[in-house]
Design a protein around this nucleic acid. Sequence first.
DNA 1: ACCTGAACACCGTTCAAGT
DNA 2: ACCTGAACACCGTTCAAGT
Lengths: 231, 231
Amino acid sequence: MSSHAGMSLETRTERRTEPLTKAQIVEAALGILDQEGENALTFRALATRLATGSGALYHHVSSKDDLLAAATDDLIAQVTRQAATEATPEDGLRALARGVFDVLELHPWIGSVLSRNPWQYAVVRLIESIGQNIQALGVPGPAQFNAATAVMSFILGLASQHASRARLFPCGADQTMLREAALSTIAARWMALEPSEHPFVRQVAEILPDHDDREQFLGGIDILVRGLKSL
Amino acid sequence: MSSHAGMSLETRTERRTEPLTKAQIVEAALGILDQEGENALTFRALATRLATGSGALYHHVSSKDDLLAAATDDLIAQVTRQAATEATPEDGLRALARGVFDVLELHPWIGSVLSRNPWQYAVVRLIESIGQNIQALGVPGPAQFNAATAVMSFILGLASQHASRARLFPCGADQTMLREAALSTIAARWMALEPSEHPFVRQVAEILPDHDDREQFLGGIDILVRGLKSL
DNA sequence: ACCTGAACACCGTTCAAGT
DNA sequence: ACCTGAACACCGTTCAAGT
């Protein structure tokens, strides 16, 4: 449409001379985070990947926290948008939980970002989405805030748990293999604890290696929803 | 009793020549954390406070994470011990929640430590304590693990939320004053959001400034317990 | 065995100097 | 206006050298 001055193709490489964009920076940051893990995201590494100087980034991003919040917001927005299409509030809450779980599975670094700064906009998105579903669920007005916070805290708690496992066994090849290895390690450590003081933990350790994270997460949400509906 | 060789008092200053202890280091670290906040805890600052070199600390503590885990464990142990004295499982869970809340209020840095490393021993203590109460509550065997994790996630989620508020308004004079200021700031920010996309959050913002954190926290636990009992 | 403290290998962020 | 990249003010951790 706007390509009036078509000219020859090789001399018109305008893209390269255009200034950096915040969106470009966030995209590059997402690449580093997902491919090389949380610790690999450095302003120096980011600058190298974008073929620029580290100081240049500060013209479009005010700090590292700002950058991480923007990256997180991009991904959480997809989850809340998807959850808004469900028919019933129960399904909405479950879709939200499932969505958060999956996005954390794919991008474990989000867990730390969310729990490090719970007032960033991505969290507002989640509270708004949770709250609307809770209202639709028929929870009485005064209890709505408590209820939304409870669900929110549950999700953030799980988030940090996922983040930490990803930190223990950073990124890499076979995720399911690593997850089982991680759980077995933890189970072994729990089994070695002093028996009389740790009856419950030792009992849980036996089931731990072959339990399903996702199922557990959704199970937790169901417990919460059950509690909510009795209000 | 063991003071056979009483001698004179001034020449017998054995204490100063005794080597450092991990307990001493943890105590000094707690002092810095509580008085000056999370960011003030540095191996250099810690060494200065203990009148030693920074490298000396590594003879008793393997890393900063190790140090923080030890400090956290000391405080969480007090909470779980206290919760174990309650009569009913409902009261036990509530005591646990209250205890965690209060300890986070006093030592906000614990929130980040707990959520940064959810497999440290302090967390095992919490899971064990939660699990025993859940068992006593009559939750059927297979659901116990899910239930315990749900409560755990809820508590850790709240923990990180507290930690972040403490980070926003680091340590200092009048805690209640600061808390109200923090909440008002957040409420104002929420009220400024686009109305049609944020009905719930904007509605909540009105109640936010004068709501009681502690009440909200215990309310959340009650929702969970209600859900648990229906299992 | 325990301590010292300089040195190492990093960070996020700033800022004079360039275009 | 935007970029460059050296410099600043830190970190956690290590390690030769001391006692």
